[in-house]
């Protein structure tokens, strides 16, 4: 028999069990409802988000191979242009490097490659897209995807005028950074951004290293092209 208190109501021993269960019930029900809502969001939005991520780099690719003005025209007017994303695996002692790249072809003829490269800048990671000709002998374009350099100084590496210095440079011998307006020296020099030598050297270093890794390995043995989704 349950103990009774002086005012006649039963002690809350059974009641305590009841209310604990009731509270857990509410949390579980809410968890189920929210879980359902989240599943609906995932099903509907995950493909949109994935294509956003892909397009962010994909739409830069034409201008890195054909140059800024003609790039857009080529793709929109020309259905025979095919851009295929893939990966390039470079075996090295220790860590193998895997690069994301895009193969650009027109009328089934290879026009060039766009490689995504990254490295340590002055104040954080720098990520680039580098456009190369089919044998990686010449640089066709450069675009900075992400950087955290000093605003006003280091982040001038994103300015088109500075980046366009890379267009047309050969890949060998490796590029050098010089301070001050081009000392008339070799063809393989890049003028540093005023007051941001380290950022300029970082970008040039990333370009040199990527070309070094990639040259001679742009063959089906090292490259895996992802299957195009219909």
């Amino acid at each position: 028999m349950e103990p009774t208190l002086s005012n006649g109501s039963t002690a809350p021993v059974g009641g305590l069990k009841n209310s604990n269960l009731a509270q857990a019930w509410l949390v579980l029900l809410l968890a189920l409802c929210f879980g359902g809502a989240l599943a609906a969001v995932q099903v509907n939005l995950s493909s949109v988000i994935a294509s956003n991520k892909l397009n962010e780099t994909l739409k830069k690719v034409p201008e890195l191979v054909w140059g800024a003005q003609t790039g857009d025209m080529k793709v929109s007017a020309d259905p025979s242009v095919v851009i295929s994303p893939g990966t390039l695996t470079v075996p090295k002692t220790g860590k193998t490097s895997v690069y994301s790249l895009y193969r650009v072809s027109r009328d089934d003829r290879l026009v060039g490659w766009v490689v995504k490269a990254g490295g340590q800048g002055y104040a954080g990671k720098i990520e680039l897209l580098l456009g190369l000709d089919p044998d990686a002998q010449k640089i066709l374009g450069l675009f900075v995807l992400e950087q955290k350099e000093t605003p006003g100084l280091g982040n001038k590496i994103t300015v088109a005028d500075w980046r366009n210095q890379f267009i047309g440079k050969k890949s060998q011998p490796p590029l050098q950074v010089v301070k001050g307006k081009g000392g008339g020296a070799g063809v393989q020099t890049i003028d540093a951004v005023t007051g941001a030598t380290i950022s300029s050297r970082a970008v040039t270093g990333i370009v040199n290293r990527t070309i070094g890794d990639v040259q001679g390995k742009l063959t089906p043995e090292f490259i895996h092209i992802l299957e195009r989704q219909p």
């Binding site: 809502a37 989240l38 969001v41 995932q42 939005l45 949109v48 988000i49 956003n52």
Partner: peptide
């Protein structure tokens, strides 16, 4: 989470 996904999309 819902707002974050909506923004990303």
């Amino acid at each position: 989470t819902i707002v974050d996904r909506l923004l990303a999309a």
